[in-house]
Design a protein around this nucleic acid. Structure first.
Lengths: 251, 251
DNA sequence: GCTCACAAACTTGTATACAAGCCTGTAAGC
DNA sequence: GCTTACAGGCTTGTATACAAGTTTGTGAGC
């Protein structure tokens, strides 16, 4: 594959995994082309690849958008992750010491990141745990699949997750690794199942996916009469379709 | 997505699943464009999508080729399928009667196809069993993943499988469904694991992947002196990179 | 003042032209 | 006769131009 195209693809995917791009963000071809110093052709190529990987969507003649999974799609993504990740743990017979060591270190890094509190690296690391697991116990193919799925669930969390429970997740990871160390892969699989279940249960799959979610909050106090010349944006939480900080700087 | 592009993508993928396109087959852009009545742009789009799905590869300025997985990639594909398919069976709590019925019917169709003996529909149906399973027990996302993986393993079988054991596979499927009917999903998962293991074990991962495999057979009897004006092709089994019956007719 | 129609700007969709590289067949040189 | 260099044809790689559609801003009409 063309290296430039691969770069764009990888840059966007890892930005999503790091929680740096919101679901619904518009990705203009020309803007990306300028940003990466390539022509639109390349950008389109990367976008189409990302589309088949399920992280981007095209709206005809309007542009490319980071996907905003529906509630249904969210359930599918979590079910799929459950299937694959528990399957992986139960398929494996024994865990090499080197793998255990690296997983333990990863959890340690998670803990430190939670204390320092950078929300981006935190979310990134929590997702990375699963990717590392697939990489260490599985193979490249499996890792790629898990990576794409993690990107999906990351976006889902950004859409539907009311409160972040990073600490709990990291605890879960720790327990899973402990079970692996004890040689009880069955237990590890069950813990993984519960862990993913917890994350999914922590979502509010009833509300978010419409772009008006943020607006409703503003309308409810009824301090709205049409005489407000400028929209108050004191709560600058970026909303889908109305984000004013896309990947590319506005000129 | 553009419907025309989707058509090309789907046509090629299902042709691969049906065993109608050999691994290593060259897919010329212009030829495909003529065949489907579209421009090269569309074909390239479809090809790039198929590339990200792992069923096609581009060789710079030479053309697109149906992948010929290496032995290593073959192992990865089978491991991944084992992980996912056993994971699926173990994640599911109970199997709805309707699903059981449709699976049973599928197995019945398999049996009939084996008796009548059309090799294409046979291979297609054996792969389809797994796809149907994912569809019935899982979700669309999972089905798509399994579909791509099945395409991979189909190609692998065509490369490395010395003898076809369709009957045995169909028996395995029957046993798996029986275990599901008995409500013993654990057993079903184990049977699935063994089934995939058997298919993998039935491969000869030492020989095939080089394009000269077919040639070596010819050279060994040493009935070759350079005085043979035309290469004998009595054994018209198509070889990778030297196939004379590509998807598109030669003009 | 409000609504609706229209136009301009902007963005993607698509084809095509040309550039660049690979493969093959041919001929010259040894 | 054998090797090697070269040229021609063929195929993909890439950019660009234009077509088609969407969004938004503006002005006329009610």
């Amino acid at each position: 594959m063309n290296p430039a195209t691969a770069n764009i693809e990888e840059a966007i995917l890892s930005a999503i995994l790091a929680g740096r791009i919101d679901p619904g963000t518009r990705l203009g071809e020309q803007k990306l082309a300028d940003l990466f110093g390539v022509s639109r052709t390349r950008v389109r190529e990367a976008m189409m690849r990302l589309e088949t990987r399920g992280v981007v969507q095209v709206s005809a003649r309007r542009g490319w958008y980071v996907v905003e999974p529906s509630a249904e799609e969210a359930r599918e993504a979590f079910q799929t992750r459950r299937v694959i990740e528990t399957g992986l743990l139960q398929t494996v017979r024994e865990v090499p010491p080197a793998v255990l060591a690296s997983l333990k270190e990863h959890v340690a890094i998670e803990r430190r990141a939670i204390e320092t509190g950078d929300v981006h690296s935190r979310a990134c690391l929590l997702g990375d745990f699963h990717i590392h697991l697939a990489d260490a116990l599985g193979n490249r193919l499996l890792t790629e699949i898990i990576r794409d799925l993690t990107a999906r669930t990351t976006l889902i969390s950004m859409l539907y997750q009311p409160t972040e429970k990073a600490e709990e997740s990291s605890h879960d990871h720790e327990d899973i690794v402990a079970a692996m160390e004890a040689g009880d892969l069955s237990l590890a699989a069950r813990l993984m199942d519960e862990h993913i279940g917890k994350v999914e249960a922590g979502l509010d799959l009833t509300a978010r996916p419409d772009p008006l979610a943020g607006l409703r909050e503003l309308l409810s106090p009824s301090t709205f009469a049409g005489n407000a010349p400028s929209v108050p944006h004191h709560h600058s939480h970026s909303h889908p379709h109305t984000n004013d900080h896309p990947l590319t700087k506005e000129d």
